[in-house]
Design a protein around this nucleic acid. Structure first.
Length: 154
DNA sequence: GCCAACGTTGGC
DNA sequence: GCCAACGTTGGC
């Protein structure tokens, strides 16, 4: 099993939005970064657990956990001219971008702020904490995932 | 709102 | 294929 972290701006889509969805699941569309896409397309598997991160939030924080419930398939928002993530180079015949389905699993009783995570020794290598890290879909080590769960349920 | 750190684009 | 210009991300 693999572990991941996805970023979202809560103003546009928050963990509460996910929890409110029918069946508590949604398609994770709109990813337009090749590295992030490749992680979703090549390595994300049903059952993988995903840390849910609120960026551009106050404070920016890991706020809960979701689970992959469907593996990568074409992202139709890429060929929707009215969508803010429209990409003229993608088409139904030749889709360039993919999405996965995520299902809500839990919301932490208290968010784990970016600042608080920076002081955790076991997380020093985390991609999220790297200066200038912008990847919106990123792998998380098992030990890191477990450390964060432990912090969240303390 | 600023701006540093990235990623992408496109001329050459 | 280099790299300058530009656009975006995201913490602060």
């Amino acid at each position: 099993m693999n572990y991941w972290l996805v970023k979202t701006e809560p103003e546009s889509y928050s963990i509460d939005d996910l929890a409110r969805e029918k069946n508590k699941r949604t398609c994770w569309d709109g990813v337009r970064n090749y590295q992030a896409r490749n992680f979703m397309r090549d390595d994300m598997r049903v059952g993988d657990l995903v840390l849910f991160y609120h960026s551009n939030a106050n404070p920016p924080a890991v706020v809960g956990v979701a689970q992959v419930v469907r593996e990568a398939y074409p992202d139709p928002t890429a060929w929707d001219e009215d969508d803010s993530h429209f990409d003229p180079k993608s088409s139904p015949e030749n889709p360039r971008w993919v999405m996965v389905d995520l299902q809500f699993q839990q919301k932490f009783s208290a968010p784990l702020s970016l600042q608080s995570l920076r002081s955790v020794k076991a997380l020093q290598q985390m991609e999220l904490l790297r200066i200038g890290s912008r990847l919106s879909v990123q792998p998380v080590r098992k030990s890191e995932f477990e450390t964060i769960l432990r912090l969240a349920t303390k």
